[in-house]
Design a protein around this nucleic acid. Structure first.
Lengths: 105, 105
DNA sequence: TCAATTAGTCAGAAAAACATGACTACTCCT
DNA sequence: AGGAGTAGTCATGTTTTTCTGACTAATTGA
């Protein structure tokens, strides 16, 4: 274990932290699905071709820890877990939309 | 060489490509410097504490290939190279600013 | 009771990203 | 001619990220 002498995090680049929240192989796609409604573990696994349990689990956990998603246990028929955008997550929607528009242009 | 059966790239997630352009250890900070003016190899190396030639070289090259930065040979006194935001790069400025504001809020 | 569906975890391997140190090549100044 | 400053490249090694396959555990429907 190395002692972190300088914890680089943001400081000089405030946008960096937010960017990192959508960084990773699956996070942008997960965010996009969350944009359209509720998201679930096994459903994502099927929707995201080439993905795997581990990566999706880690992505969901990190996005939750970062405050982008909220995890809800739904005590209904099949008893399952849902993830949906938190307020912080929703605050990123306009930016994400702009990225999509720019990409389309 | 494996045949890519599914070239995942964007398709279902248009924002992904743009996001990837600012993904990496140094790219957000390089972009931020480029926002304020011209950027140079050795200067970045000094400005970005903990960075190294290789990583900065690769980041600059990729950002250039992605069309974010333009490379210009300046035939003046010290004869050097400058990188500055392309039109595409400039189109990301408002988004980057919004990220900074959100981060500050 | 058994099988399927839910949502994961864990250890290890493979792949990608990043860092290190040595080296190159050109220009500029003395 | 020599030294410093420009901007890199290259081979190698380390670190981080991602993937694979096996396994766990609770709930549900037949």
């Amino acid at each position: 274990m190395t002692t972190p002498t300088h914890t680089h995090t943001d400081s000089s680049c405030p946008a960096e932290g937010l960017l990192k929240m959508l960084t990773g192989k699956w996070k942008p796609q997960i965010f996009r699905f969350a944009l359209e409604g509720t998201v679930r573990f096994n459903t994502l696994l099927r929707q995201l071709e080439g993905s795997n349990k581990q990566s999706i689990a880690v992505a969901l956990k990190e996005m939750e820890e970062q405050g982008l998603l909220e995890k809800v246990v739904v005590k209904l028929k099949p008893l399952h877990i849902e993830y949906h955008l938190s307020e912080k997550g929703k605050s990123l929607i306009p930016i994400f939309r702009q990225l999509e528009q720019l990409a389309a242009a």
